[in-house]
Amino acid sequence: MKKEVVRLENVWVHYNRVPILEGINLTIYQHDFLGIIGPNGGGKSTLLKVILGLIKPDKGEIKVFGRPPEKSRERIGYLSQYKAFDREFPISVWDVVLMARMGLYEMFKRYSEKDKKLAESALKTVEMLNYKDRQIGTLSGGQQQRVLIARALVSNPELLLLDEPTAGIDAAAQREFYELLKKLNEKTTIVLVSHDLTAVSVYVDKIACLNRKLFYHNSKEIRPEDIEATYQCPIELIAHGVPHRVLKEH
């Protein structure tokens, strides 16, 4: 029996009394590589924020590593949506990554040798160590994304949450990026959120569809009716045949 990493039971979230998440039930197991797809505004980012404990559900239970989400944050690496920060900000790649070693008490201290070693190895993992003195905004979109992944990896998280990690990245860089994730998945549970079904489906092991309601069968299989319910219009899906099959033969 695989270990449970995240467990949501009948989770509801509202914004201005409009439901964003409706009765979500989801269990994520150790070493899962789960892709969550769905239209923009379907609640994908909200779901990740619920798992991080940034958004409190109005109803329902949520456990991360068997504890309340805000108590498990140390064990989670998080990559927020691309637009989250100012590219012109006066900060080097090195300082972006080191930021992951901050905390309430660490705030008053200098970074330790251990912090620097961890930051260095995280940058090595994403092959960005040579760029450590560059200002973040001078890098290409794909390189910036690698740096942010490094920041999410610094503290060796057991769970990695990625919100639209390939937005604004060209196809070649995307492929490299997914190969990197595949490698990371050997040690880490990964949840990846995207509105781009085809790109995701090639690399992830399991797929869930989310549009306020979640459709998930703990596998890589999506039923056409789930897709229709998620996107609220019939979508023509092309099943590519092995090894990228998403749709069941029908």
Partner: peptide, 23 residues
Amino acid sequence: FLLYKGFFALSFDEEFGGLRGIP
């Protein structure tokens, strides 16, 4: 001087800083 790192995190990425326990 005392809170430089905290203000740095606040300025660059408030959400991430908050997740790391920065008030």
